[in-house]
Amino acid sequence: MIETVCSVVENHRLQPGYFRLRLRVRPPVEPAPGQFAMVRSHGEYEPLLRRALVFYRSYPGEGFTDVDFVFRTMGRGTSRLSRLRAGDWVDFLGPLGRGFEWRAAGSGNEALLVSGGVGIPAFFLWAEQLCARNVEVRLFHGDRTSDREQGLICVNDFAALLGSDHVACTTEDGSAGSKGLVTDLIEHHLIAADGRPRRIFACGPHAMMRRVAELGSKFGIETQVCLEAPMACGFGICVACVVRLKRADSDLSDYHRVCLDGPVFDAERVIWD
């Protein structure tokens, strides 16, 4: 984790409401897949808190790292970030949190990535890393709707990396991909699949991840979820961003910090209320 001021290389509007922000971070950082940073326009304190953005991509340079974030404008903070321009300064704290894990104890050589809406950026670094390990990676992505001109965010990058036959999309209004929910898409895949061991990674809306966790449990597949929660600090201090997890050894449960203990957790431990 470093705390530094970095410069905006570019801030590109992908489609209405969605932006891709590239920062040049010195000294270099090595974000792990699923990790995030707390960022804000340098020296601006309205709104007060930094915003948590998951790393989308990273590009090592000489003495720096260029990192990309893809975000949706939700409120005051992300609206301010959307107005950043090349050359502006950004306060950066990161990389933060514990990302996705490929555990040696697990078996199988196939990863199913399930994303909903603006959850998709959390997966690109992970997909890259898994491909480098010769894991077979499939992305299932869903959204409410798609932009008439631009389609679904980030999907083209994943298709280029994984091959378009390994990327399946769905929208609730049928404007891109099949019509329906991504949880139905993944369920059909699991039913039709040959029973080979595989793993699931999910990032998206609460209800989507809850359903994916149920499917993982039903099909006996190790499932990790990347959660989101309101957080003030991003490094474990405020204890605001908690999620309730079952203990491994008993029926008891405790609050854990999404920012420090996560944001990625074993789905079977999460209590989804």
Partner: peptide
């Protein structure tokens, strides 16, 4: 501690219920 959500950002500040 208390059930989440535990913070709300306000103008020039924040509310917490940790």
């Amino acid at each position: 501690g208390n059930p989440p959500p535990r913070i709300v950002e306000t103008h020039g500040g924040m509310l917490n219920s940790i």
